[in-house]
């Protein structure tokens, strides 16, 4: 009886954790996309988000939070693949530029100029993508 109760409690806790994590994931699903769609934040060829113009502190804080998560992810992969953080970040930018920058959203190549993606025209690949 007590063992069954323990099992039930464990199962319940497991389910709650699962629901919590999926809800968390759902809530965070498009945090970067939401920022990009405001037009105040764009994707840079260095693998990080950047401010397109001047933006409220709240927008900057959300952007910084995402960039910190990105850097952590880049750092981990870099150590696993014997690459530098900058290389992982630049490699990720290739994928982001190809797949994540939506119509009307902003991107910045190494020339430092912010450009807006025109409709469904493809975003140019940074030179380092090969």
């Amino acid at each position: 009886m007590t063992r069954r109760m323990k099992l039930m409690v464990a199962a319940g806790l497991g389910l709650a954790a699962l629901a919590g994590s999926s809800a968390y994931a759902y809530g965070m699903q498009d945090a970067a996309g939401e920022l990009r769609s405001t037009g105040q934040v764009g994707e840079q060829a260095d693998g990080y988000l950047g401010l397109v113009g001047s933006a409220p502190a709240a927008v900057r804080a959300r952007m910084d939070a995402i960039n910190i998560q990105r850097r952590a992810a880049y750092t981990q992969l870099a150590s696993q693949r014997n690459a530098t953080i900058e290389e992982v970040a630049a490699a990720t930018a290739c994928q982001i530029f190809a797949n994540r920058v939506g119509p009307g959203q902003y991107y910045r190549l190494p020339d430092g100029v912010w450009r807006q993606r025109n409709g469904n025209e493809p975003v140019p690949r940074p030179d380092h993508c090969g």
Binding site: A25, M28, Q29, D30, A31, A32, I66, Q69, R70, A73, Y74, L77, R81, A83, T84, E87, V88, A90, A91, T92, C94, Q95, I96, N99, R100, H128, C129, G130
Partner: peptide
């Protein structure tokens, strides 16, 4: 550049494993 090209498959997974970050 060769490292960047070599990493493409890895970073594709990295993006999928971190929803909301990319």
């Amino acid at each position: 550049q060769e490292v960047v090209v070599r990493l493409q498959e890895d970073v594709r997974e990295l993006i999928q494993q971190n929803p909301g970050v990319f």
